[in-house]
Amino acid sequence: MSNNKTSSNGSAKDSIENIQSNFEKQGYICNTHIATAIFLSQSLGKPILVEGPPGVGKTELAKATAEWMEKPLIRLQCYEGLDEAKALYEWKYGKQLLYTQVLKDKLNQIVSKSDSLESSIDNLNNFDDIFFSEKFLEPRPLLKAIESENGSVLLIDEIDKSDDEFEAFLLEILSDYQVSIPEIGTVKGKIKPIVFLTSNNTREIGDALKRRCLHLYIPFPDPFLEEKIISSRVPEIDKNLKVQLVNFVQGLRNLDLKKLPSVSETIDWARSLVLLNVKTLEPSLVRETLNILLKFQTDIDVSDPEIENLIEKSKK
């Protein structure tokens, strides 16, 4: 028994490392923490709720997973007022109307064939079924993900922006991976999609939804990881500059700012510094390009007096 245990642990560890190295190949650098979450969600068949400050790569994680598993990524962006018709399925009303118009003559024929009112209603009833068949069904992201033949990666982005009602509606789909359409019946997928939900925590997510998910919190990366991310995304950057830049941004995150600079903004800044052919950080240059990192004038004002200090520290 204990031997078995060790070997299965070994393979779990291997798979986690495997995931990590695969992600790395695609340029998504992550720590074991994140890779473990992906591994567990796969092996337990559970959705992952990813939380964290904006710009730490929550959406990227889903993209990287899709690419690694070679499955299509289906993305559903949430917003206030999102409802079933836009998330799950909708009838193609226009097409239905058009068809009834075009087929008017045909319908007349059929109705005229029957002699009593009852039989013509019966005849029409049959058509009803035709008009409410899959031909006239417009699948939206959720249905697409469930129906897809070879499985898929479903990304429900910024779930915190949607209404409570929509969250409740997701519960059935996330626990059973099935959808009931009254006119057709229950649609159940062959392969469970891998589901990511992301949230920026603009509002508390309901307990019921959280219970059904594994919860992964991605914080800002530590300097070591951030350096790795930069060298993967901006390979042409000078090594010295990279260290300085990462240290500078990390120092900036310790200040009392409205919006802290995210990883994606660090990458943007690194790219622009490379374009400007910079070899080392200078106060005047940092002041000119600071608006790439900081998006609020108040934040820029707060950090302005600290710039020399931060640069000094980052060079150590």
């Binding site: 245990k5 060790t6 299965s8 642990n9 779990a12 560890k13 986690i16 074991t32 923490h33 473990t36 979450a37 591994f39 567990l40 092996s43 337990l44 559970k46 992952i48 709720l49 959280k210 998910c213 594994l214 919860h215 992964l216």
Partner: peptide, 27 residues
């Protein structure tokens, strides 16, 4: 879920166990 996670991960690696369990027990 936590049970399942433990049987997937095993008990050997303490830090691995810690953050694996945190996925399902702390949200």
């Amino acid at each position: 879920d936590a049970m399942n996670i433990v049987s997937e991960i095993g008990l050997e690696d303490k830090s691995l166990l810690k953050h694996s369990l945190s996925f399902s027990l702390a949200k």
